[in-house]
Write a protein that binds this DNA or RNA. Structure first.
Ligand SMILES: [Mn+2]
Ligand SMILES: [Mn+2]
Ligand SMILES: [Zn+2]
Ligand SMILES: [Zn+2]
Lengths: 138, 138
DNA sequence: ATCAAGGTTGTAATGATTACAACTGTGCAG
DNA sequence: CTGCACAGTTGTAATCATTACAACCTTGAT
């Protein structure tokens, strides 16, 4: 399991990123909530514990984590930005009915195209949309 | 070539969508500009010809076209929404250096995952990011 | 000519994100 | 010890894309 707190803490230290109380809380939150939360969700939930927490800090922290490559930003819908602690390549499916985002396994190596021979690819995102099984059975 | 004006006009009529002057202009613009423009670009360029054009109309039209399945919305970057008249499945590569978005061929059929057996998939988006060849040769 | 429906327009409101300046805590030089 | 520098945090203001809304316009049918 790549998303253990200790491993991620070490990665932050390796990147010369100070482990502040707030940053650790955001990190823990993402590890415990793999449901691709929005900034609003992260802030609202953490604010219950840390009443002094600022939403700006959540934004700042997520940017730090993103730059360090510890979180992935999901923009499957232009209207909402979501965050994922799981950076290993996998796809995301969003149900148009219930709005839930599902992870799914996918072989990213198969996703090569001759058109991109000379391109340096650093990020691969695969987004599907449709209806999930739970919503299918009307 | 699927993106001929006549074919698209017929598709609009089939969907009971009135072919107003403004809508036709937006449609023509998308056909002539395959560079995945933003609303701002579409509006600014069309406004030169149609001085009375409202940005709201551009938004409205794009939504109508999207709902009719004639345009695809590209949210490769959470910060900008772009539009593509080409709805046939293909991938998009965004260069982190120059910002240009490239199309690339990809076999969407190979993009199936056993995890999604029971899912009804209606949209497949593949977004890559990195450095394009032009920017590579420093 | 009158009317209804749909389309367009301009402006106001919304909401997410960013900018910014003040504040806080920590570690080290003196 | 004491004060300073630096990084991180906070709250508020500003920004900017998008949406809501109401007035206006066009068109086609009665
Ligand atoms: Mn995920
Ligand atoms: Mn395209
Ligand atoms: Zn569902
Ligand atoms: Zn480039």
């Amino acid at each position: 399991m790549k998303t253990s707190l200790e491993v991620l803490k070490q990665e932050l230290l390796d990147n010369n990123i100070h482990l502040s109380h707030q940053r650790l809380k955001v990190l823990e939150y993402l590890i415990q909530n793999h449901n691709h939360p929005t900034v609003e969700q992260i802030f609202t939930d953490l604010h219950k514990d840390i009443s002094t927490l600022s939403k700006t800090t959540v934004y700042n922290t997520l940017r730090v984590l993103e730059d360090a490559g510890l979180v992935r930003v999901i923009t499957i819908e232009g209207t909402e930005t979501r965050y994922d602690i799981e950076v290993e390549n996998h796809g995301h499916f969003k149900c148009k009915s219930c709005g839930k985002i599902y992870d799914f396994e996918i072989d990213m190596n198969v996703l090569s195209s001759p058109d991109l021979e000379k391109f340096q690819i650093s990020d691969k995102d695969v987004y599907f949309k449709g209806i999930c099984p739970r919503c299918s059975q009307h």
